[in-house]
Write a protein that binds this DNA or RNA. Structure first.
Lengths: 113, 113
DNA sequence: TACCTTGCTACTAAATATGTAGCAGAGTAC
DNA sequence: GTACTCTGCTACATATTTAGTAGCAAGGTA
């Protein structure tokens, strides 16, 4: 499965339902991370590498190409940036930031016992 | 990296920030899918396998154990179900269903030319 | 011309996911 | 009690994906 394009078969679903394509895309390592970090503002390749701490350049490039084809990010003079579609996606998942904190507080036994 | 537990190091981040743990978790194949399909109601192991179309039992079991430890799902008499935390997470990502449809409509060149 | 930095490619090793077979336990039917 | 079925799940070999590291080509500076 090269790319999870809505309308075609994707990993995990033959139906090609857009939501399945999206879940496939977001389920790939670093997809969400790249979007999350780019939401802080445009970044060059190397800046993004630093924001993502531990991503390898080959994988970063792969993800960037995917996200670019799927029109969630674009290349501009100041580096990579979210498109308006990418931003609207981020606005949906933005509350995850707060949610994850609440979640962490309810998992006390694991994080430190 | 066994499990993305907030507070400990996770794949892609040494900080242990909850959001990074969450992004790691959701970035694993089928994590989002399992949550998505479970949101339609509780399901037994084999029912879930069918909803997920193409998940292998070994991976399904792995994900179920992870999500159970992280308290997003629980086992009940009628099978697996989202916990209240799981449901609150789903409520955040629920709009992705509609978003993905809009997204698909803006990618006409790929889905069908 | 020598030296940086940047975006990115190449390549190997390690980790993850797929796919298929099938087991052990519970329930029912004879 | 033994044969049949269904369930949750494990085992394991194969295929795919990701990590990790080295380094190249292009562009700018000095």
């Amino acid at each position: 499965m090269p790319l999870p394009i809505p309308g075609s078969q994707v990993r995990g679903s033959k139906s090609g339902k857009p939501i399945m394509a999206l879940l496939d895309l977001l389920g790939r390592t670093w997809s969400l991370g790249v979007i999350w970090h780019l939401s802080q503002g445009p970044a060059t390749f190397r800046q993004l590498q630093q924001r993502c701490e531990q991503i390898s350049p080959s994988l970063l490039n792969t993800r960037l190409q995917e996200l670019k084809i799927l029109q969630l990010i674009e290349t501009r003079s100041d580096g990579y940036a979210l498109t308006s579609q990418g931003r609207s996606l981020f606005e949906i998942i933005a509350p995850l930031g707060q949610w994850s904190k609440d979640w962490a507080n309810h998992l006390p036994a694991e994080s430190e016992s």
